[in-house]
Computed example of a mutant assay.
Amino acid sequence: MTTIATRSVEYQADGLTMVGHLALPADAGRRPGVLLGPEGMGLSDVERRRADALAELGYVALAFDLHGGRYLGDPHEMLARCLPLLADPDRMRDIGHGALNLLRAEPRTDPDRIAAIGYGTGGAIALELGRDGVNLRAIGTVNATTTGRPGEAERILCPVWAGVGSEDPIMAPEQREAFTAEMQAAGVDWRLTVYGGALHAFHHPPVDHPTVPGVGYHPQHAQRAWSDVIALLAECLPAAN
């Protein structure tokens, strides 16, 4: 039985040497690609497993890095890096483009058939690639109903799906409303799924370090959100040739 292939990959972005996780389908042909961005803590085995699952479905998947090969388990250290990053669209785009360039350069990737999905900070980066006019087939985010600079959402060229917990204090109702207003005003094909009773990072299994308030795992909604991501890809970027 042929299995997927995985490897660590290094690339430059945000002045750092990033270390991503690349997962390749078992066959030998060129396949559509998916960028997968992590929560603010950074790349972990959670995202690596998701990239592997995407490769099993027939995608070339790159789980990208945020912090130069580091995982920021200390919430204070994570916020100290991520809050300035989230306030700087150009830095987010630099991180996104660094990963995107690597994915496009992979010989197994069809460079014209790429989607970007992400969680938290990684989702905000996926959205900024869209606002930068990148030719993506779909953008999917969880916990990332972030808004951009005025008028730039008009550059988004693909459908956008966003998922968020109803009890998420970080992506609160007013933030969700600002995001949907931005998408609507820009004429984007957008969808928002609100998962009842879920907190921020509801998709992420429990971690063995402190987290910021308002974070909590919801196993049922975690599976539903993953199914919604897969459905978005099946609609907008089918893995079959």
Rank of each mutant, 00 (worst) to 15 (best):
P159D: 02
L102F: 05
G165N: 11
G197V: 04
T109G: 09
R93Y: 15
T193M: 02
A115R: 05
S166R: 08
G123H: 13
T211I: 15
A126Y: 12
E154A: 13
A172K: 08
V215P: 04
G197F: 10
V212L: 15
G197L: 02
L199G: 05
D168L: 06
A124E: 00
T180C: 08
A99L: 05
D112I: 08
E152T: 14
R113Q: 12
R108P: 14
A99K: 02
E167G: 05
G187V: 06
G98D: 07
L100Y: 03
R104C: 01
V164G: 15
L192K: 13
R131D: 00
V188M: 04
P219V: 02
N143D: 07
P169Q: 07
D132P: 12
Y195E: 09
A198T: 05
G122V: 01
L100S: 08
I125Q: 11
G130S: 07
G96W: 15
H97Q: 10
V207Y: 12
P206V: 03
Q184A: 15
H218D: 15
A162R: 01
R155E: 12
V194G: 13
G96V: 04
G123W: 02
L100A: 10
G151M: 02
A105H: 07
L103A: 03
E182Y: 08
N101V: 00
S166I: 00
G120I: 01
I156W: 10
L102A: 05
A115I: 05
L100I: 01
V215E: 05
T109S: 09
R155K: 14
Y119C: 01
Y217C: 09
R113L: 08
L102G: 03
G123C: 06
